[in-house]
Design a protein around this nucleic acid. Structure first.
Lengths: 220, 220
DNA sequence: ACTAACTTGAACCTACTGGTTCAAGTGCGC
DNA sequence: GCGCACTTGAACCAGTAGGTTCAAGTTAGT
């Protein structure tokens, strides 16, 4: 996957600054792609925003397409890490199911509404025909997070806290109940959603989810 | 909204062929934009696909931007009409709530999975920053359809078939339960979803919805 | 038949942008 | 201090595409 020879012919190790430059380029690339979209984004501008000369960009990442790929992947890795941390936190407070689901739901929505997150979804949605494989890196509503959530739900199922069901489907629906409403209300991320509204959406989603999936009727 | 003088100085009426040309242009434009995206689409190709000379395109729709706008709006009108018809059908078979919801859900998903529908969502998602106002025309998960569905649900609520709730929220969640799973499974429309799978998703959505919203526990 | 509206094809202009080249420079290990 | 790897800036090339112009049709009302 790495595009550039990091070991030269003489075995000299790459300098410290090089990797910083690469990171700067990828960050700038993601920022510019986010604002302009793939086709409209201009490599010149990316180089400028990264504080780097244009040939340096082409030295690190051969193509515009490659630049896009790696920029997306890098950004997705960051975002996904944050989300996974939120899901891991589900393990802790195991007493109150509803409170726990609301907490994790709210956390997920906060990640989902992050500016970078919207930008990433916009880019992936737009360029899915040109870069079909990139879908796998999608945060929040991507396969990775859904799977992780399904695992958690499966445990809750075994523990008898939710009724017996297909955990994959339950996770899918839980995510949908969270992200769907926020999608329309925020107009694809162009209008900021108040923190309070996010809470409400998460609460409503959990309420519906509990009514449908809770083992004992504890939604009183 | 119309860009071109349809009445000339002498009051001559526009020819029959003119409107046909316009329609051909808009259709071709939507097709090409769908395939290529806004920036990558080339007006030359649109003209060619419409069987029309390039200046004719600029005669009817001044700009590339305007061309995009009108192409989207025209396509959205068509799609929305189909969907509304599906929702109207909810009025009929009023006996079996579950069957009715499954039917309309399945129908909605079929519209949602139409190739044109995917293309439209891709385009809107991608260009929402450049054309923020276009979001209002979005079919299925747009404001129009959600509102119409909410109206239906409100009636069901009054009739006592579903428990007392905010119909807007219920509609929002119903749509989310339908579209969310299909979104991830079809990889943003790049992978075809089998008819049978669509049925399953609709069934699962309705099941969860009924468990959460049905007045009497009729999900036995 | 006359004329105004519209269409056509092709050439044309202009701007932009992906990508390359090159000579001069810079930092760093030895 | 030497030399290698990398960076830089600027010029450069080539392809592409939005938009215009123009002369030559074509259509259809009167």
């Amino acid at each position: 996957m790495s595009d550039v020879r990091v070991l030269s012919a003489t075995g000299r190790k790459p300098q410290r600054g090089r990797i910083d430059k690469r990171r700067a380029i990828l960050n700038a690339a993601f920022a510019v792609f986010s604002r302009q979209g793939y086709a409209q984004a201009c490599v010149n501008e990316i180089a400028a925003e990264a504080g780097v000369a244009k040939p340096t960009v082409y030295n690190h990442l051969t193509d515009k397409a490659n630049l896009f790929r790696h920029a997306i992947e890098a950004a997705a890795a960051t975002l996904t890490a944050e989300i996974m941390a939120a899901i891991e936190r589900m393990a802790d407070r195991g007493d109150d199911l509803r409170a726990m689901l609301e907490a994790v739901g709210h956390e997920l929505l906060r990640c989902y509404c992050d500016e970078r997150s919207w930008a990433m979804r916009r880019l992936l949605y737009a360029e899915v025909t040109r870069f079909p494989d990139l879908l796998d890196v999608l945060p929040v509503d991507g396969p990775g997070v859904t799977k992780a959530l399904a695992d958690r739900l499966a445990r809750l199922c075994i523990a008898g806290h939710i009724r017996p069901t297909d955990p994959d489907q339950a996770a899918e629906q839980f995510i949908s109940l969270l992200t769907g409403p926020v999608e329309s209300r925020s107009r694809f991320g162009t209008r900021p959603v108040a923190e309070e509204e996010l809470r409400d959406i998460a609460r409503a989603a959990v309420d519906t989810f509990m009514r449908a999936y809770a083992a004992s009727p504890q939604h009183g």
